[in-house]
Simulated scan of single mutants.
Amino acid sequence: MTLSAAGLGSTTQPLSTVYDLAMLDLDGVVYVGRDAVPGAVKALTEARTNGMRLSYVTNNAARTPHEVAEHLRELAMPEVDDGDVVTSAQAVAHLVADAVPTGSPVLLVGGDGLRGPLEERGLRCVTSLADEPVAVVQGFHPDVGWRQLSEASFAIQAGLPWFASNTDLTIPTARGIAPGNGSLVQTIRNATGASPVVAGKPQKALFDETMERVGGRHPLVVGDRLDTDIDGAINAGTDSLAVLTGVSTLQEIIERAPGQRPTFVSADLAGLNESHLEVELDGDRARCGAATAVVRETVVSLETGEPAGTEALRAVVGLAWSVRDRSDASLTVDGTLGA
């Protein structure tokens, strides 16, 4: 892999043959709600055939790794073992276990997806400050409500350390975008003025947990969110692939500053099995393979190529980053791109 076009990575080989492990986000990348993202099964099956190991890395702490793995198996994802799933609940449980004595009571704000990893680390989950917990541990669950949030606030105000699985403000669902764990964390912040120790993306603890559990020497982070997946990859010193099947948009990608950009971009997981050719730049024009992009006034548009194709997206992104870096121009992408 080489870097070109203002930091965009390039390779003449499919990513699934260049990297030995894909650390895949789930919501908005592999599935949305109960349904697989279109094309995900085919793309991941091909990547696995190419020798790439697949790990499923999620900030969502609502379900246990077994429950997530069962869901993936129901969707016919290739060769899924329970150990291939790593959650932010496992990462935060590791952080807590390193910070408090074995067997300590901890105040649980969440569900079984968080309880299981805490108990696996030898910690005892309690639900009241009266049970004398030594820490507060918070993770997403749809049944978390005022009483749990209030009890956590009282414990934090009493001086207990606070750990959170993740701080995603939103979560994609089949019905649309819903509040995530970060929104619930913010509720406690509002009440206490405190901030938690965070394990999930964009912090590197979740990626460290994945490498410890799954292995891999040359991993690639794959995600749909710039603020968690891609920033997390950067914090972990790992290359990344941004896909457009979830939260972040192509417009948001071209607005990213140097040092905050994904290594690769594709419409969906099919990008794992494609080469990512070098972007050739010539002023306000760029070419990648058969695709050509151009900037007219402040709009980046496509002259040739398939709008949702990887070559087209690379030409657009590489050109936009190049123009922005040399002129600090504010650009927009043609609305048909990445669709």
Rank of each mutant, 00 (worst) to 15 (best):
A130Q: 04
T210I: 13
R189G: 00
D82R: 06
K204C: 05
S128A: 09
A152P: 03
R326M: 02
L337Q: 03
A339S: 10
T304L: 01
L8T: 04
P133M: 00
V221T: 02
T332Y: 00
T2E: 15
V299I: 08
Q90G: 13
G145L: 02
N59Y: 06
L241S: 14
A130V: 00
S165A: 15
V323T: 11
A97I: 07
G110L: 11
T102M: 13
V92D: 10
A130F: 02
R48W: 04
G33L: 06
V30K: 01
A286I: 05
L149N: 06
V279M: 15
V214M: 14
V126T: 03
R324E: 03
S150N: 13
F154D: 01
S165R: 04
I156M: 08
G271F: 08
V30Q: 05
M211A: 15
L281Y: 11
L75R: 02
S248W: 11
G216F: 07
A93T: 12
A315R: 02
D131N: 06
N190D: 08
T64G: 12
T298C: 05
T192F: 09
G9F: 04
N235L: 09
S88G: 13
G318C: 05
T2S: 13
L226T: 01
D239S: 15
V247E: 10
T263G: 12
G216R: 13
R53M: 07
R261C: 12
A257Q: 14
G176A: 10
P65M: 15
G110I: 07
G122E: 02
R63A: 11
G7E: 03
T167Q: 12
L184H: 06
H94M: 14
L269M: 14
C125K: 07
G111H: 13
V92R: 06
H218E: 08
S104Q: 11
V214S: 11
V222A: 03
A97N: 12
L269T: 12
L244K: 13
P78F: 00
A242S: 14
A329H: 00
A76L: 02
G200P: 03
E151I: 11
V243T: 10
E79N: 09
G309C: 01
R48G: 00
P219C: 03
F264P: 03
R147I: 02
L8E: 08
M23C: 13
T2I: 10
A339L: 09
S165V: 04
S88M: 06
T167L: 08
V243S: 12
Y31D: 06
N50H: 14
Y19M: 08
G271R: 10
T64C: 13
P117M: 04
D282F: 09
G200L: 06
D25M: 06
A22L: 13
V100G: 12
A158M: 02
S275C: 15
R324S: 12
G335W: 01
N190H: 08
E278W: 10
G28A: 09
E255Q: 15
E132I: 00
V294Q: 09
T192V: 04
V109R: 14
S240H: 09
T58N: 10
A290G: 03
A257L: 14
N50S: 12
N59Q: 11
G182F: 05
T336P: 02
D35Q: 05
L114W: 04
E132G: 00
